[in-house]
């Protein structure tokens, strides 16, 4: 495997994956996108990802269950929760269960990039934030 950051992105909204995959690729992440939590869990059972980005409110399997699974299977992985149903109680629950960060929808691509950069730093690898810096100037 390369020394790129391995990212798994799970959201049942297809557009999220379609947009974030290139956005994260720009800062040197290798992104696998899933819309179905079952498939994502199956994939994660096989392989460790550095960062897991997951939606919380999904049919069948809840993002919290994904979080619990990752924390147990790959304690080193950083899990970032993204949700449209952000509430204080949900945020605290996620943090307590070991989420690395919690982001409320809607967010900008840069918001996630910053968090992923932070996660990379916590994992001990620096991320080239060049692309994101350029955009900041635009915003």
């Amino acid at each position: 495997m390369s020394d790129n950051l391995q990212v798994l992105l799970l959201d049942d909204e297809p557009i999220v994956g379609r947009r974030l995959k290139p956005a994260l690729a720009k800062i040197g992440c290798e992104v696998e996108v899933f819309e179905d939590p079952e498939e994502a869990l199956a994939r994660m059972a096989q392989q460790e990802f550095d960062v897991v980005v997951t939606d919380i409110r999904m049919d069948q399997i809840d993002g919290m269950q994904v979080l619990e699974f990752v924390r147990e299977r790959w304690p080193r992985s950083k899990v970032i929760m993204i949700t449209g149903y952000a509430m204080m109680s949900l945020a605290r629950e996620a943090m307590e269960k070991g989420a690395f960060d919690f982001i409320a929808k809607p967010f900008k691509p840069d918001d996630l990039r910053k968090v992923i950069a932070k996660a990379a730093k916590a994992l001990g690898s620096e991320i080239d934030f060049g692309a994101a810096e350029v955009d900041k100037a635009n915003g």
Partner: peptide, 13 residues
Amino acid sequence: GYRKFQAMTYSRK
């Protein structure tokens, strides 16, 4: 020290 009360992007925002 509980993880529950940690700062996060959402609450900082």
